[in-house]
Design a protein around this nucleic acid. Structure first.
Lengths: 333, 333
DNA sequence: CTGAAAGCGCTAACAC
DNA sequence: GTGTTAGCGCTTTCAG
């Protein structure tokens, strides 16, 4: 692999002149430039990003740290990030924590090792605070997406999940449901807490009782426990509607319902979050709160780039509205 | 951000000793080591991967270049790659070409710039050959997955798509279908060609006519043209079954059918490739050829790592069988 | 067991 | 316009 002095030698100039051509900086005689360009082509020269980054103290690399790259929500975030990053001359490195705080630690460490210029991160939970501190220590700017971390002031782009959950539940209440189950994520995760809070507020405001047995705490990944639905239906006074807090929980709930011979929405209603996977247009039937995932990525990255350029100082909080999409998974009771 | 000589100074040793501790290479007195470790912790020292890679001429970074990271097939490939890479001390950088050969060129260039140690790539099509040559020029090992490139000898992991498509079509034929439509990908793409070939073989072997009007050439991404199905059904002698060549084509076909009031499988049967997205377990009803996507990633990466270590020399070809999963989208005619 | 010198490939700062 | 020198942060090589 040719390096800069190979090119310089072949063009009969110094390395510095080659560097100038490379960066279109400083003056280079047109004729010299041509000779240099020719030499670069002859040698298939591609400059080393490593050497460049080492001296410039800039890698033009951003990292995206998400809990599950197979979740359509996060792949959409990734696209939003990618687009903004590319437009600004940055690369993106994707990483996947599997909702595991230790893996997250590893990846955050990696971000430091590769000297990423900034990190967009959907933290696994409140325990992520140590990982974020690591980034701060290394003075790597970061922006949180989707999830806050208890007691941490930082740039953030999230959805108004309390409000969205509340609307979903109120929709059910208006349809006459008052036994509404919730399958949500773990409580050490701010996104889950918000969604559950919206659920609780709606019930409380409408003077409906909160029943512990109607709340199931599931994981946010694909490995959602399949028994929750059966347990709910086995209750003495079973729910007539189910609220699920994400893509996977909803899919699993639907599968369980089908297995148990329950029809949606005739026998039971269901609402969810983020159920927007175009792959599932085949059954576009879940009434859901759709968050603007692409904007999470693009706005988050813009914030991050501003941080990197050192433009503003006070942490910014961007809260985006979700849109409630009424489809066919709910029915009057 | 602390560097190696900061640590050295604090520990009262030379940079070299710190390096030895870092790499557990050479002898360091236990006591000295302790002092060094202490200093590293005090300073939150994280060594620069840039400087390290520059001198070692190894980045321990692999790249995965796929046409669509939102396709569950490729996210599964990514997981397979990630797992093997991590186990061997390598990082993975994911990139997304959107089935666009120019974007692919950019990303391949990026692989060279960051001095990736190797590349796993599902090429966009036959035109990708120039991109692969670029890699060869830069002596960056690569392994093809899923798709061959016309006239290029290279390491490869793919599925037996001809065979799998043939089986799917034969299944339909056995059910009494003889007007079978095919919605496949572009012909400049080896994977599409294989699938179409399997379709054609099956028909030919069973002495059924090949009808051009039954073959629709779609894109492989989400943006599948929605009119194909309507066009097929508008034919004087419309098909009684449809074969789609990937996830997105199948989803779009199903949506169109539903819109047109066609029931599956009562009115029309449908079979597909790779329809294994767990998110769609809600309607697990497509009879499909499921390729071992995870193995594409893991085996491909193993091959790649062997290449990087320079273990073997003759290009290896690994062809994996798909499993035909009979579900509920087909019916006797 | 530890250190000094050199250099990976590039560019910032200064000469000429 | 172009070249020289120095150094980014680390490791290799060789000395001690």
């Amino acid at each position: 692999m040719a390096n800069i002095s190979d090119v310089a030698k072949r063009a009969g100039v110094s390395a510095m002149t080659v560097s100038r051509v490379l960066n279109s900086s400083g003056y280079v005689k047109t004729e010299t430039r041509k000779r240099v360009v020719r030499a670069m082509e002859d040698l298939n020269y591609i400059p080393s990003g490593l050497a460049r980054s080492l001296i410039q103290q800039r890698t033009y690399t951003l990292a995206l740290v998400v809990p599950d790259i197979t979740n359509p929500f996060f792949t959409t975030v990734a696209r939003g990030m990618e687009d903004v990053a590319r437009k600004n001359g940055y690369r993106v490195v994707l990483t996947n924590t599997d909702e595991d705080t230790n893996k997250e630690t590893e990846y955050v460490h990696m971000c430091a090792t590769i000297r990423a210029d900034g990190v967009l991160i959907a933290p696994t939970g409140d325990a992520s605070v140590v990982n974020l501190q690591l980034l701060s220590q290394q003075s790597i700017p970061f922006v949180l997406i989707d999830r806050e971390v208890g007691g941490l002031e930082a740039d953030l782009v999230k959805g108004d999940m309390v409000g969205a959950a509340r609307q979903l539940i109120e929709h059910l209440i208006e349809l006459g449901h008052h036994r509404i189950a919730a399958i949500t994520g773990p409580r050490n995760n701010a996104a889950s807490r918000d969604r559950l809070q919206g659920y609780q507020w709606a019930l409380t405001q409408h003077h409906l009782p909160l029943a512990d047995e109607l709340i199931k705490e599931a994981v946010m990944t694909r490995q959602v426990d399949g028994r929750f639905v059966a347990e709910l239906l086995a209750l003495p006074d079973p729910p007539t509607a189910i609220f699920t807090a994400n893509n996977f929980q909803c899919a699993r709930a639907l599968a369980s319902l089908r297995q148990l011979g329950q029809r949606v929405p005739e026998d039971i209603s269901i609402v969810s979050f983020d159920n927007s996977d175009p792959l599932c247009i085949m059954e576009p039937f879940i009434t859901a709160a759709i968050q603007p995932a692409y904007d999470f990525g693009s706005l988050g990255t813009q914030l991050l780039l501003e941080r990197i350029e050192g433009i503003h100082t006070a942490p910014q909080r961007i809260v985006l509205e979700a849109s409630i999409v009424h489809r066919k998974s709910t029915q009057r009771r």
